[in-house]
C-alpha cells in the first residue's frame, strides 16, 4: 500500500503508524464481509471510513477491537500485533471502540457507566478522568446519578463517548456517532470530534454521514463490498466525482 501521501501533518512514516492493518479478511462463519482491507492511522489523525449500510464498517471495527477474530491478515497497534488478542488485552493496549448503538449499561447510573470505562485501563486516574468527561459533557455531570437507560439519544451518545474516554484511548474508534441524532446534535457531534482531535486524540471515524466526515477527516476511505474502493485526503475526496458514483453504487 502506498504511504498516505499528502497527509496534512505529514510527520509520520509507515513504520510509525499507530494502527496498521494489512490484508484484513473477516466475517461471520462462512460469510466473508471484509475481503482484504489495508488501513493506516497515524498519531494525531482523524481517519474516516465511509460507506452505506452493510458494507462491513461495523465488522471492521469489531475485528479491530477483537470481538470478531480475523480470518486472515495482520493488525498492528503501536507496533504490537493484536489480531490474535481478546478484547480485554486490546482495550488494555489503548485501542478503544465506542460501538454503534452506544451499548451503554442501561440500568446503571451515568457515573457507574463512566467508572466501568476505566475497568481495564486508566483505573488510577479514574476520579480525575470522570471530572474531565464532566467538563467535556456538562449534561452528564447534571445527570450523573440518573440511570443511563433513561437518557435521551444524544445524551446516551455522549455517555458512550465519555465511557470510551475513561479508558485513556491512544486510538478512539467511533462507530456511527451521529446515527439517530437530530441535525443540530450531529453538528455538535462533529464539533466534538474536532475538539477531541485538537487535544491530541487519534480517531478512526466510521460514518455514513459522508460530507461532514470528509470535512474533518485527515484522510478517508470509502468501503464497498468489503474493500476500500476510494482513498485519499478528506478535502480531495469531497471534490472527487468518483465519490458519488462509488458511494451510491452507480
Amino acid at each position: 500500500m502506498a504511504p498516505p501521501n499528502g497527509s496534512p501533518r505529514g510527520t509520520w512514516r509507515m513504520a510509525e503508524a499507530l494502527l496498521s492493518v494489512r490484508g484484513l479478511v473477516a466475517g461471520y462463519g462462512e460469510t466473508e464481509v471484509l475481503r482484504g482491507v489495508d488501513l493506516e492511522v497515524g498519531p494525531g489523525e482523524i481517519v474516516a471510513v465511509l460507506g452505506s449500510n452493510g458494507v462491513g464498517k461495523t465488522t471492521l471495527n469489531k475485528t479491530l477491537s477483537g470481538v470478531i477474530r480475523a480470518a486472515a491478515g495482520e493488525i498492528y497497534f503501536g507496533g504490537q500485533r493484536i489480531d490474535h488478542l481478546a478484547p480485554p488485552a486490546i482495550v488494555a493496549a489503548g485501542l478503544i471502540h465506542v460501538p454503534e448503538a452506544r451499548r451503554i449499561f442501561p440500568d446503571m447510573s451515568v457515573r457507574e457507566n463512566l467508572e466501568l470505562g476505566s475497568y481495564r485501563r486508566g483505573k488510577a486516574e479514574r476520579a480525575a478522568n470522570i471530572e474531565k468527561v464532566f467538563d467535556t459533557f456538562p449534561r452528564l455531570r447534571e445527570r450523573r446519578a440518573q440511570l443511563a437507560g433513561t437518557l435521551s439519544g444524544g445524551e446516551q451518545q455522549m455517555l458512550a463517548i465519555g465511557r470510551g474516554l475513561m479508558g485513556q484511548p491512544r486510538l478512539l474508534i467511533l462507530d456511527e456517532p451521529s446515527l439517530g441524532l437530530s441535525p443540530l446534535l450531529v453538528e455538535e457531534m462533529f464539533a466534538l470530534i474536532v475538539h477531541l482531535n485538537a487535544e491530541g486524540m487519534t480517531i478512526l471515524l466510521v460514518e455514513q454521514n459522508v460530507m461532514q466526515s470528509l470535512a474533518i477527516a485527515t484522510r478517508a476511505h470509502v468501503l464497498e463490498n468489503g474493500r476500500f474502493a476510494l482513498s485519499g485526503r478528506g478535502e480531495d475526496l469531497a471534490r472527487d466525482p468518483e465519490l458519488e458514483k462509488t458511494y451510491l453504487g452507480m
Binding site: V67, V91, P99, R102, F105, G117, K123, R163
Partner: peptide
C-alpha cells in the same frame, strides 16, 4: 468493580467486552 462488571455483562455483553471486561 467486579460487581459492576457482573451487572454490566448481565444487561450489555458487547458493551462490557468493549470496556475490557
Amino acid at each position: 468493580d467486579t460487581g459492576k462488571a457482573i451487572r454490566a455483562v448481565a444487561k450489555e455483553k458487547l458493551g462490557a467486552a468493549l470496556v475490557g471486561i
